[in-house]
Design a protein around this nucleic acid. Structure first.
Ligand code: NAD
Ligand code: NAD
Lengths: 208, 208
DNA sequence: TAAACATTGTTATTTTATTAACAATAAAAA
DNA sequence: TTTTTATTGTTAATAAAATAACAATGTTTA
């Protein structure tokens, strides 16, 4: 299949998250407009996204929740589990680790790396923290493909470059520093302040 | 002026962040292509955004960094400071507070609210934590307009509804739960897992 | 059974966002 | 001084995303 639009991928992730909630609540079928309204989007959007991944409902009964979860998984998850590491297990790193650990079967948070002697070789937020110096060795051994970057801003560039040198293929960058990555490496950046300023702007304008 | 496109607002925030970095590095002028390359976007994008806010450069010398920072501020910041509170000062709340506190002059983190007796009436990550029960009173007294929601998922709906009842106009929701807000309230949601799954998908596809 | 209905998958249309094109302009070079 | 050059602001073109429209199809109900 062709690569899906980034927005569709994001929504598929959200659909799955929501659908898992439905399963928990013992709901086994769901109509497009119901799923849509849980996520505050339109039913057309849902149907169009599902069309793109070729999923068909049981007519007039809605989508089979469990089946749809599986289908989305087959599309957006990798075949074998993809291993993830957190670089810099400080305040944000710990929050992220705690939230993330064990949430997805195909996305496995296997390590954190830090240079604080107080932290290394301890289990923090459910994840073993390794010395930063061992990153090269362990990235290979543990087959880590994705890095979550939560080091202080001053070290962002340097640590990112290292993760790439050691074989990482994707980076989720939470530091303030915009990174430069070579082609072939997928980079996603998120800065909370941008979100806050966006909220503040639209609150001020009160027109949206 | 007309409301700016959301994407432009996001980029203006990023421009400003980057420009402040330039100022720190004693750089006083910057060309559109230089700013663009710091953020990995195109120069046209930069120029178009600045056109929308009506900012003009000193020709052939580039944009005056300080002046541009001020102009962006006049557009995206509110006149008087806008007060912000964090609801639920746990792992994520603390990380956010520490990062955010004092970063923007017009966006002021003035309180956190929590129902853990161990936390209330202490200063945590630079912010005073108040008992959740006093939210109603204090939201008015402190004139809080924006809430950052970092409570456990199970309490997301309830606490969000309360903040709205008590006068909040914008919510930045970090919980897994998609919220339903009445019109007139601006809602921004962010879930790390969606970002992670997006990274994983494009790493898997290796085509982007 | 036949008519009305609810829901879907998909194509067509509209809207939004990005990129390209280019004339205008002043600085630098000839 | 004149020409070349670099850079801008803006309009025009393209691309991406969202929405609308609608035929198809079984379900319900009259
Ligand atoms: N994007 C966001 O929304 C957001 C929110 C909060 C914080 N942040 C950013 O995330 C980063 C981390 O914030 P924090 O509050 O967790 O900071 P922190 O100081 O609590 O944590 C940083 C961690 O990195 C470790 N570290 C320092 N240098 C290192 C190195 N060279 N190699 C490996 N580990 C190293 C430290 O020992 C510490 O454990 C900062 O850049 C901050 O600006 C971003
Ligand atoms: N969006 C993301 O990227 C992301 C990342 C990590 C965590 N999270 C989410 O953020 C939330 C907080 O995560 P965390 O790791 O900080 O959890 P946490 O348990 O460390 O913190 C939650 C805090 O909320 C307080 N609280 C509980 N009930 C409350 C109530 N009714 N009113 C006020 N305060 C209350 C608790 O006392 C605690 O201090 C969770 O919903 C988690 O899923 C989101």
């Amino acid at each position: 299949m062709n690569t899906l639009p980034a927005k569709t991928v994001e929504r598929l992730s959200e659909y799955r998250r929501t659908l898992m909630g439905c399963l928990n609540a013992k709901r086994n079928y769901i109509y497009s407009h119901q799923l849509a309204s849980l996520l505050h989007i339109t039913a057309v959007q849902v149907r169009r996204d599902l069309m793109l991944i070729g999923y068909s409902s049981v007519l007039r009964k809605g989508y089979d929740v469990r089946e749809l979860i599986d289908t989305i998984g087959r599309i957006i998850d990798s075949e074998e589990t993809m291993n993830v590491a957190i670089i810099g297990i400080g305040n944000l790193g710990r929050a992220v680790a705690g939230y993330f650990k064990g949430k997805r079967s195909k996305l496995n948070l296997v390590a954190s790396f830090d240079n604080d002697p107080q932290k290394v070789n301890k289990v923090i937020s459910g994840v073993r923290c390794y010395p930063y110096q061992e990153m090269e060795k362990l990235m290979g051994e543990l087959n880590i493909r994705i890095a979550i970057l939560t080091v202080p801003a001053d070290y962002a560039r340097e640590t990112a470059e290292n993760t790439i040198r050691f074989g990482i293929k994707g980076i989720l960058n939470f530091t303030t520093v915009p990174l430069n990555v070579p082609s072939g490496i997928f980079l996603e950046e998120y800065d909370m302040i941008t979100s806050m300023e966006k909220v503040a702007y639209f609150v001020k304008e009160n027109r949206f």
